[in-house]
Design a protein around this nucleic acid. Structure first.
Length: 363
DNA sequence: AATACGGGGCA
DNA sequence: TGCCCAGTATT
């Protein structure tokens, strides 16, 4: 149903121009818009993946303060990078960020790749980020295609393909590639279409009455703003049940790093037993042999604390059992667990669920 | 071609 | 609640 774009070919030539003019008047003043340093552009783009500007901005400031250059980040420990990233989610972004910083510093002499194709080879840089860095830092004429772009193009051109499919991604990428050809400035155009999606052509209640593309917009003219873009519904979230055993001795807590290919990889937590059922009493759980002695001699400080953490694809219900281990008891901790003081724990990267527990139980 | 991967904000 | 966010890597 793209009769409009076919029957109204005048949309395409003026499209980029209209957005670039709109952008000049409406753009927000954001820190990464004052630089063409590829390191800063790259950093901002990784942070902004699947992340709103208002949420990502403070992280950008903190990262830049901690690591002013790519070699500063390369010298850091991954743990510290993850600690700075804490609370932003999608932690593979932080691990890849650090890995790429090291690669650029040691293998590329600190010089970022300067083309879309070379940028694409870096860990954590996909088609969107490669296009963003290539255009913003180096002026390459390659189109960004992000959630904003899907929305704007789907509406203006009346594209009803399901944007989660590979076929649709090609449709949008092809159209975006065509549209950027008539842009005055590729960097400005890319910024403009995303800013337009974020401010004007919003997911809910787009501001069509004041839209410069109103009379050329298929969605507006057919009253389908709410229907576009088309996106398949996500599968329902998975429920998971975690029981945490929080061993405490001398104001220290036993924690370890998550290493599994799972949520929160490389972040720190307590001894975890996962079960298929919710609220399984401690006595009925299958606990590691190595924890038996600690539990035998330990004293629960009270009933378990129950917390819930909602992820976009999982709902984690967690029960925390705090066990006070006597000073004199010197039995070894289960595999991977180590005692950490409160100060040390503060420096460890932790899932928000764990931070919430610490906040709640210890203040 | 699907699915996994966070956390926050908004109606 | 459900949806969305300057997506990418893995299966």
């Amino acid at each position: 149903m793209d009769w409009l774009s076919d029957s109204n070919p005048s949309v395409k030539p003026g499209f980029a121009y209209t957005l670039e003019r709109w952008y000049e008047h409406h753009k927000r003043d954001l820190p990464w818009r004052h630089t063409t340093d590829p390191y800063r552009i790259w950093l901002s783009e990784i942070i902004l993946q699947q992340t709103r500007v208002v949420q990502g901005r403070p992280y950008y400031e903190r990262f830049l303060a901690a690591y002013p250059t790519v070699s500063d980040m390369a010298r850091a420990d991954e743990r510290d990078v993850l600690r700075l990233w804490q609370g932003l989610g999608y932690y593979s972004r932080a691990r890849n960020l650090h890995q790429t910083a090291r690669y650029v510093t040691t293998q590329l002499n600190g010089k970022f790749p300067e083309t879309y194709d070379d940028l694409l080879k870096m860990k954590g840089i996909g088609s969107y980020t490669a296009a963003a860095v290539a255009s913003f830092a180096f002026g390459e004429r390659v189109p960004v295609v992000d959630g904003n772009v899907y929305r704007v193009l789907a509406r203006v051109f009346g594209i009803t393909e399901d944007i989660t499919t590979t076929k649709a991604k090609k449709t949008f990428a092809g159209l975006a590639a065509e549209l950027i050809q008539s842009a005055d400035n590729p960097a400005t155009y890319n910024q403009a279409i995303m800013e337009f999606g974020a401010i004007q052509c919003t997911p809910v209640a787009p501001d069509c009455l004041l839209c410069p593309l109103q009379q050329q917009c298929n969605a507006y003219l057919t009253g389908r703003q709410q229907l576009l873009p088309v996106k398949r519904k996500k599968a329902p979230v998975r429920e998971r049940y975690f029981t945490y055993i929080v061993f405490r001795q001398d104001e220290k807590l036993a924690m370890r790093e998550r290493t599994a290919q799972d949520i929160w990889q490389n972040l720190y937590e307590f001894l975890l037993i996962e079960d298929e059922e919710p609220a399984v009493p401690l006595a009925r759980l299958v606990l590691p042999e190595s924890a038996a002695e600690l539990l035998q001699n330990g004293v629960p400080t009270g009933p378990p604390v129950e917390l819930m953490q909602l992820l976009s694809h999982q709902r984690v219900r967690a029960w925390f059992y705090e066990i006070e281990v006597p000073d004199h008891l010197n039995s070894p901790l289960p595999t991977g667990l180590q005692w950490y003081s409160a100060a040390e724990i503060g420096g460890l990267p932790k899932p928000v669920l764990i931070t919430n527990y610490l906040q709640r139980s210890l203040g």
